[in-house]
Every structure is written in C-alpha cells, then in structure tokens.
Write a protein that binds this DNA or RNA. Structure first.
Lengths: 216, 216
DNA sequence: TTCCTTATTGATCATTTGATCACTTTAATA
DNA sequence: TATTAAAGTGATCAAATGATCAATAAGGAA
C-alpha cells in the first residue's frame, strides 16, 4: 500500500519555479483577492512559504507580477487593423472584433484581477481604459463618420458625446463579464448573440444620434 | 491660547453612537475596502477601538450593517410606476428614470461598496441585479413591445435576447459609474447628456433588432 | 562516486489586528 | 448633592501573517 506522492520534494530550475509561482498566484488572487495569504498560496503550490520570498522580495512583488502577467499578452495589435479595414462592412468588423475580444477577455482570472486592481488603486487598468479609448472607441467613431459621410475629422474632431456613445456600447458588453465573474449572476458561456444584437442596436441607432450631435 | 476641542469626550446615547459608527464605517470601507482595520475606523470616529465591540459583536457585523445601510433607502418604488406610465412618451419616461436613478446611485460610497460586495461573495448585490431585471428591464422591454405593436406578452413572453439588449443599455450607463468611482478615469460630474444620447440610440436601434428577434 | 552550488525547508521573529476585560468616567435621576 | 446605570477606555491576549535565517538536501559537474 504505497503512499504515492505524499512527499516528492522536487528541485526545479529558477525559471520554472518562478513561472509556476506566478501561474498559481494568478489563479489564487483572482479567486480571493489580493489580501490572500502567502501561506495558502504556498500550500497550493506544494512548497514551503519561505520559498516564495526567495523568488520575490515581498508579497507586493508577487502581486505586481500577477498584474503584468494578466494584462500583457491579451491585446492583439491586429485588432487595430481589423477595425480600420474599409474593405469590409463596419458591422462585420465590429462583430469579429467583439467576438475575438470577448473570447480573449471574458475569463475568470482576467476580469476579477481587473476589478481588484481598480479597488486597490493600481494604475494599470487606467492604462487599459486608455487603450480601449484610443485603439477601439476612436476607431469606431471614425469609421462611423466615414460610413455615413459625416463631417470630416480634420474639420470637426471627434466629440466627447460620440465617445460617450461608443463607451455605452463597450461598457454594456463589458458589463456582461462583470455580471458573470464578479456577481456570478450570469450562467451562460456564450454571449455571441447578445453581443451581435448590441452591435446591431448601436449601428441602427447611433447614426441618427450622431447626426443630431454633429449639427451643433 | 485655549486648545479648543482637543479633548471633548462626549457621551452619546446608544442609538446616536451606533448610527455615528455606521455612517463613518460606510465612508471608511468604501474608501479602503472591507479589509480596513477597526483601529483606524475608531481613530476616525475619535473613539477607542474596544468601543466598537460594545456596539457590534464582531467586525463582520459592522460590515453587514454597512451593506444594509448602503443598499436600503435607495430604490424608489415610484420608479416602477413612472416606467409604466403610458400617458407619457417612453423616451420621456426613460430619461426621467435614468436621470433620477443615476442621481441616487452615482455616489462614491454606493458604487464602491457595491463592487466590493461582489468580490467578497456577498449575495446582496445579486438581489439588486434581480431588482433591476424585474423592475426596470422587464418594464422597458414590455413598454417597447407596446409602443411598437410587437407581439402580445401573453402570447410571446419576453425573450432572453430582449433582456440582453436592455441589459446592454443599463450596463453601459452603469459602466460610467465604474469608470468614475472604481478606476477614477472619469472626472465629469454630470452625465445627463451621455445618458440621454444612450437612451436615444437604444430607442432608435432597438425596435429594428427586436423586430428581427420576434420573427423567429 | 564525490563534491559543491543552490533550491528548499523548519523554526522563529515582529507586526498587525480582531477581540476581551477590569476599571474609569459621565450624566441622568432620586 | 449623592447615587448609579451604562458609556467609554487602557492594557492585554491570541491568532494571523509577512518576512528572515541558519540548516538541509537535490542533482549537475568533476
């Protein structure tokens, strides 16, 4: 009756162990928030708690790396080209973008760590909001002007109200993720239909409102 | 040179002190999250830390009362009548509702404690989402059917896709509050214009999409 | 196989923090 | 004014928790 795996002290290379710690830290902190304890994190990793401090000087450094790990590698630069690709209808582009974007973003770890970061006053998510503003909403508004022959950008720069409307679309979609991962009140896995409908409403309704806005 | 008010140990009645503690706890926990310390809370109140435990058996009880204090007294039952008042255009009703709703809800304390509650797994906000679903979105969808002579509710109950679209409007508006109070990336105080525009887009775009949905 | 670098750990420290309790002080009231 | 119920406090406990360090052991190099 061999008690397998009760004790298998394994010696890993510096890089392997470090990555292993970060991977588990992402999972753990996403679950319980950043006031989770180093002892519990070590327990989940099957290592001693002091070993963590051999790889990271302080707990704060682990948290910092978790942020980086979660935020980086998610944004796909080709999305910027996709949104601006005028050889395809804007509706197609928006649907493809939000389909891929939500597939990349709608993950337990990502959404929760995102929200935690806002609470703890971390500036990283503010950078992310800026990314959305500059790379997504700006393009959406620009393409809408083009598609409907609205005033040229050079003469009339994008207005705050146009951005607000694009935020409303984006925020409405992101709010699905909040309902799902923060409040657990949304059980579905697939939101393609909801997203398609939201885009359809936006594209059907926004031109009218934009027209009124741009008259001033 | 009299040092006024340096020490004015005031003896309050049970009820007064209790309310004072809760009021400050709402402010404090909204600011730093629920892992704020009882010592700091007591310091802000100008009382000793053990006194807190004379009024609440545990810290958890203070937190519980904070939730209740923040959630209760915000929802106005007359909003339900407002949304259903067919003597006025739906556009007017939606604008008035969201104007009053955001005035009541868009507060630092309310939004942050709301988000914290989701993270800590408190069920209170799930109740709040249900309230929105049942008392707001349900009415919006119902009124849209009426206004556009869509299929009768008795024959075709409201579909998930209709609710999704209403959620998109509501979530988009609520996301303004998240940007403002959680991420601090929104400095404006007044969002009436943004909200009016969002409602306009919804009312201009939703009927088309609803029509398509209801054909199935 | 032996040596030696370094990954890993047990024991422990210092601080933080929720909670308790005996004692003090306030102010209403008899 | 003296009495007394209860509001309020200082001292302190116990557990939790981040961090340190000397000692141990894994596994590649010689």
């Amino acid at each position: 009756m061999p008690q397998t795996k009760i004790k298998k002290r394994k010696r890993l290379s510096r890089d392997e162990r470090e990555q292993q710690i970060i991977d588990e830290a992402v999972r753990y902190f996403a679950e319980v928030g950043f006031d989770g304890q180093t002892r519990e994190l070590a327990r989940r990793l099957g290592i001693s708690q002091p070993l963590l401090f051999r790889y990271f000087p302080t707990k704060g450094d682990i948290v910092k790396r978790v942020y980086e790990e979660v935020y980086l590698r998610r944004w796909q630069p080709q999305w910027e080209d996709l949104l601006s690709d005028r050889s395809r209808p804007l509706s197609d582009r928006l649907n493809q973008f939000y389909h891929e974007y939500t597939n990349a973003i709608f993950e337990f770890e990502w959404v929760r760590i995102l929200v935690f970061s806002g609470i703890k006053g971390v500036t990283l998510y503010q950078q992310y909001l800026k990314l959305i503003h500059d790379k997504v909403l700006d393009r959406i508004c620009t393409e809408l002007r083009e598609e409907h022959n609205f005033p040229d950008l050079k003469k009339t720069p994008l207005t705050e109200r146009e951005f607000d409307l694009a935020w409303n679309l984006h925020g409405g979609i992101f709010y699905i993720a909040i309902r799902k991962f923060i409040y657990g009140s949304e059980k579905r896995e697939n939101f393609d239909a909801a997203i398609e409908d939201s885009i359809a409403v936006f594209l059907a309704g926004a031109p009218t409102v934009f027209e009124a806005i741009l008259e001033d």
